[in-house]
Amino acid sequence: MILKIDARGQRCPWPAIRLARALREAHPQIEIMADDPAAERELTAVATAAGATITRQSSQFSQIFHVAGPGVVNISFTSNG
């Protein structure tokens, strides 16, 4: 099952934090929508650190990132709250 995260309207680092949390919870397939221009760079960094693959699909109003693969996220990418 694909976990869908709507991070539109959230500025980085929040989309990256939400992705890191989902990866830490071992969701194998994640789709995250984001509209912050910095999202691609930050989401790619989190996915790469977790050993996951990430692909981007653009739409008129936001970008959709598909993240797949198991991985362990460096705990420093996520908050404890």
Rank of each mutant, 00 (worst) to 15 (best):
M1P: 02
M1H: 02
M1Y: 00
I2H: 08
L3D: 02
K4D: 11
I5W: 07
I5R: 03
I5G: 06
I5T: 06
D6K: 01
R8C: 10
R8Q: 06
R8F: 06
G9C: 05
R11P: 01
R11K: 13
R11E: 14
C12A: 08
P13Y: 07
W14L: 09
W14I: 09
W14C: 01
W14A: 09
W14G: 00
A16N: 03
I17D: 08
L19E: 07
L19W: 05
A20I: 06
A20Y: 05
A20P: 04
R21I: 14
A22T: 07
L23H: 05
L23C: 08
L23G: 10
L23K: 05
L23V: 12
R24W: 00
E25M: 09
E25S: 09
E25V: 02
E25Y: 05
A26L: 07
H27Q: 12
H27N: 13
P28N: 07
Q29S: 08
Q29M: 05
Q29A: 08
I30A: 02
I30N: 01
E31D: 03
E31G: 04
E31K: 07
I32S: 06
I32F: 08
I32D: 06
I32R: 03
I32G: 06
A34Y: 12
A34M: 09
D35S: 04
D36E: 11
D36N: 12
D36A: 10
P37E: 15
P37K: 11
A38Q: 15
A39H: 08
A39D: 11
A39E: 11
E40L: 04
E40Y: 01
E40D: 12
E40I: 01
R41G: 02
R41T: 05
R41H: 04
E42D: 13
E42L: 11
E42M: 10
E42R: 02
L43S: 10
T44F: 15
A45L: 11
A45K: 05
V46R: 04
V46W: 11
V46G: 12
V46A: 12
T48D: 13
T48E: 14
A50F: 08
A50D: 07
A52T: 03
T53L: 14
T53W: 09
T53M: 13
I54T: 11
I54E: 10
I54Y: 09
T55G: 10
R56M: 13
Q57K: 13
Q57E: 15
S58N: 09
S58W: 07
S58D: 14
S58I: 06
S59P: 00
S59R: 12
S59Q: 10
S59L: 10
Q60L: 14
F61S: 14
F61H: 15
S62Y: 15
S62G: 00
S62C: 12
F65H: 02
F65W: 06
H66L: 07
A68W: 01
A68I: 03
G69Y: 04
G71D: 00
V72M: 05
V72S: 11
V72A: 12
N74A: 14
I75T: 15
I75K: 09
S76C: 02
S76Q: 06
N80Q: 08
G81S: 05
G81I: 04
G81C: 01
